[in-house]
């Protein structure tokens, strides 16, 4: 995001910054390299859509985390709790509307899914507010304590989820109209994955718009670059940070709903499992960079699906491998954020 200022009217007067577009090629290149290996076009389409869907969901979850880190130098190891919380809330909400979710009608399904997502986002955001107050605020600037305290928050959160919803695995069926696959030529593309890609793109577009076209976004980007400078100009960066943290938690909640529907069953540990994945993504992207996070998420999603099909044994390490390669190329991640 650090170079995403081109075209903004305010910026036109300034000398244009040489935008770093090379990483943008990574995703299409990876997809094209995989094409000849796959053998058939239809398999490739199926896997690419699956990979993009997974990548989009990971992006929704990880974007808040990377912004929070960029803005305030806080890495929240407890981010996973919001994922699990969102998924469980959605399960409860959808559970009350079985009439609508079971119907084949797409509109009724959407009417059921939307409140589920909204509830998940609002509650996750609210819990995020409390989490910031109680867990994170006392340990600003102390990395060691931050890591431990957010980890502790994660343990307690996971146990509380077990207290409320039980420790067993709970199935989360997709609403009826989301099930099944569409046929594009020979390629079968699952409907839900298309929906996930659409929602992911919408979130990315909204976030891109907020960050590059609004005052708040300008402040956030400026804060990521140089916090003290923004503070000295009279802006309350703390309040901004709380806002970003709440938004990040809400997005994690939304991502949790989508991840839960993607996996179709829920366990209280799902948060910590996804945590590993999103850490890899934000390291690849460059800590603090939303654009890098987007590319990183898509790369991880695509690679996981391609290797899962081609060489299943390697699939488990594909993420680590990707991280090592990216870090050898750019030690600070794809888009290093200036300050760090």
């Amino acid at each position: 995001m650090n170079s995403a200022t081109a075209g903004s009217p305010v910026m036109d007067a300034l000398p244009s910054v040489n935008a770093d577009r090379l990483p943008l090629l990574l995703v299409p290149v990876l997809a094209l390299v995989a094409l000849p290996l796959m053998g058939s076009l239809s398999t490739w389409v199926t896997l690419t859509v699956a990979g993009l869907a997974m990548g989009m969901i990971i992006f929704i979850i990880a974007s808040g985390l990377t912004l929070v880190f960029g803005l305030m130098d806080v890495l929240n190891f407890g981010h996973g709790v919001f994922i699990a919380l969102g998924a469980y809330l959605a399960m409860s909400v959808l559970g009350t509307m079985t009439g609508w979710t079971a119907s084949e009608h797409l509109l009724l399904n959407l009417l059921a899914a939307l409140p589920a997502m909204l509830v998940a986002m609002i509650v996750a955001g609210g819990v995020g507010l409390a989490f910031e107050r109680v867990i994170i605020r006392p340990v600003y600037g102390q990395h060691l304590k931050q890591i431990m305290i957010t980890m502790g928050g994660m343990i307690v959160g996971e146990e509380l989820i077990k207290v409320i919803w039980g420790a067993q695995t709970i199935p989360l069926p997709l609403p009826a109209a989301f099930r099944g696959a569409l046929l594009l030529g020979d390629a079968a593309v699952e409907k839900y994955r298309l929906i996930a890609v659409v929602i992911g793109l919408a979130v990315f577009a909204a976030m891109f718009w907020v960050l590059s076209r609004t005052k708040v976004g300008l402040l956030i980007r400026a804060g990521v670059q140089d916090r003290e400078m923004v503070e000295s100009l009279g802006y309350r960066i703390r309040r901004l940070f709380v806002g970003v943290f709440v938004a990040g938690s809400a997005l994690a909640g939304l991502g949790g709903v989508m991840w839960g529907l993607y996996q179709q069953n829920l366990t209280p540990q799902m948060g910590s499992q996804v945590n590993v994945l999103i850490f890899i993504v934000i390291i690849i992207g460059g800590l603090g960079s939303v654009g890098g996070c987007f590319i990183g998420a898509l790369l991880v999603g695509l690679l996981a699906n391609y290797t899962g099909f081609l060489v299943p044994k390697v699939a488990l390490f594909s993420n680590i491998l990707l991280m090592v390669i990216v870090l050898l190329w750019r030690p600070q991640g794809i888009y290093p954020v200036a300050k760090r």
Partner: peptide, 10 residues
């Protein structure tokens, strides 16, 4: 430290 914690986790 934070970087190390994440990498070891992965």
């Amino acid at each position: 430290a934070i970087f190390y914690a994440m990498i070891t986790l992965a």
